[in-house]
Design a protein around this nucleic acid. Structure first.
Ligand SMILES: [Mn+2]
Ligand SMILES: [Mn+2]
Ligand SMILES: [Zn+2]
Ligand SMILES: [Zn+2]
Lengths: 152, 152
DNA sequence: TCCTTATCGCCAACGATTGTTGAAAAACAA
DNA sequence: TTGTTTTTCAACAATCGTTGGCGATAAGGA
């Protein structure tokens, strides 16, 4: 994803207006590597703009996705996740427990489909989801002072 | 997934009763490689048992999943897909167009995460989704007699 | 300025899935 | 066969994430 300034430019030149809400969303997405859901984006943006509606967030996320500035992902956590990183070819690590999603920046060129195993599909891309436990969820809960941890 | 006879056995020994509906579902799933959704299973089963409810289908699919006889998958098509093949290690080919899902039986041992790229995740499994066009959707629509194709 | 677009709030609707209830049917152990 | 337990069905309502209206208001931008 480009910088908020560049996005401002891009929105204008694509006939979209640049509002305070949108710029706030740009800023929030900027450098966010957590692959937030729309709700999560809304939660953060709301801290700065109390009255912004979830609707507006969805709309802006879709605009950004339409412009190719972010990607929307379905990694099986029940909500669409949004990814500002559209430049690095990468895959994803997904925590079975808390649903956190992180980038795994690595290319697997050896992902060749064995001859004849493709069942006639014209394959264009491959997405790998690595499932496991994130560092937070791995942490033994019972060591030292019990550390309260929210389930979200 | 085991044979309908073995599943009958398994259901009994796990305290479940064996009904005509359940057996019908066993039979329908048997050898089905299309990764049907609950709706799809219901549609097929309904041909044989007119009055079977979608509810019952969901319930039985969950029972089977609980027993490890089938797997439930989320490959981004909007509905949970059910997979009777739990013995072959495999990945999936998903058609971008019609959403059909097929097995890609191949092991990719080279799917090693580069040192330090795992961000501290304790990775347990990796699922690959190959996206592309299935043979049906690849087929040029205009050749010879136009072949009507439903969108489902 | 003036036209266009965005936003808000509110509420309804979506599709996939799960839950509820009560009555009827069936499974199966004794 | 009888009696107990489970399952099914029908008909709903409810859930969750998401999208869609609506009119009123606010704001962008040439
Ligand atoms: Mn990513
Ligand atoms: Mn499969
Ligand atoms: Zn976690
Ligand atoms: Zn297809």
């Amino acid at each position: 994803m480009r910088t908020p300034e560049e996005l401002t430019e891009l929105f204008r030149s694509s006939g979209r207006k640049v509002t305070a809400q949108r710029q706030c969303i740009f800023r929030v997405l900027q450098g966010d590597e957590t692959h937030p859901s729309a709700e999560a984006v809304h939660a953060v943006v709301s801290r700065e703009m109390e009255t912004i509606s979830l609707k507006t967030v969805y709309q802006t996320l879709h605009d950004l996705a339409e412009l190719g500035e972010i990607a929307s992902l379905d990694v099986g956590t029940g909500m669409t996740r949004f990814d500002p990183n559209v430049t690095d070819l990468h895959h994803h690590l997904v925590c079975r427990q808390c649903g956190s999603v992180r980038d795994l920046v690595a290319v697997f060129p050896e992902l060749r489909i064995p001859e004849g195993a493709d069942l006639g599909f014209d394959v264009g891309s491959a997405e790998i989801v690595f499932r496991g436990l994130c560092p937070e969820c791995r942490a033994p809960a019972g060591r030292g002072r019990a550390r309260a941890r929210s389930s979200t």
